[in-house]
Amino acid sequence: MTATVLSVQGLKKTFRRGLRAKPVQALKGISFSISAGSITGFLGANGAGKTTTIKCLLNLAFADEGEVRFFGASELSPAIKSRIGFLPERPYFYEYLTGREFLRFYGELSAEFKTVDLRARVDSLLKRVGLEHAGDRPLRGYSKGMLQRIGIAQALVSEPEFIILDEPMTGLDPDGRYEVREIIRETAKSGTAVFFSSHLLPDAEQLCERLVILAHGELVFNGEMHQMLSRFEVGYNLTFTKDGKTSTESVPTVNDLQKTIDTRRAERADILEIKLNRLTLEEAFVRIAMREQA
């Protein structure tokens, strides 16, 4: 059985700003879990409660109710924290530090490295995120994509078993998004569980095995990506040739597909392709969101 790195039970959070302001219930009792070594996408529209959830997980904001367990432990102790990496949304880092100083600073905070080991770790991380050429430059001169990559590097500095990335692809150009996607893929390949929030669904579709979807502070889906997409299968396309002419026919179910194949074969048509029609994650997400609104 795969070990659980994070389990969340009934997380609730209400914000009260000002004495007269109406309380806003940001999280309405959400529950989910993350398995070791998986890539899980945490999806939802802006304001769905993704960042609030992440902050509650890491005690950067305090939940009103609910239980969070990392690696089975209910307390977020320093030992547990050193097994977790985190990149916040729109990160701003100490711009007076060079990339190397920045990683060394977070490395020293994360774990008790020997000086030589930390230096080697920093060098390998700079290489891994493609910033070895910029390691001695102050962060104030870094582009958005470079900052995002150095941010991921700081999340990985202690070789965590689990990393949480809040909107790691937001604001990046296609090249930057590709680079971040590749880093996430490699990180997961090395055995680290990745939990990342995003509203960029094509990126999530390419990366994730599992999805946790929020809408208005409520959990609307928690499971495998294929389960989510199979909910929205919309039939099959059958392509065939007959008398030298190629045609495509849509059929709604597997039974219909079988009957149609038999019919076409009886007509001496050649079947060229059978394609399952399913929605993209983006289309499926919009349908879920519309259902929630209704």
Partner: peptide, 12 residues
């Protein structure tokens, strides 16, 4: 500048 978030997510 939200640097506190990355700091407090470490064992601090």
């Amino acid at each position: 500048k939200q640097t506190v978030l990355t700091l407090l997510a470490k064992p601090v």
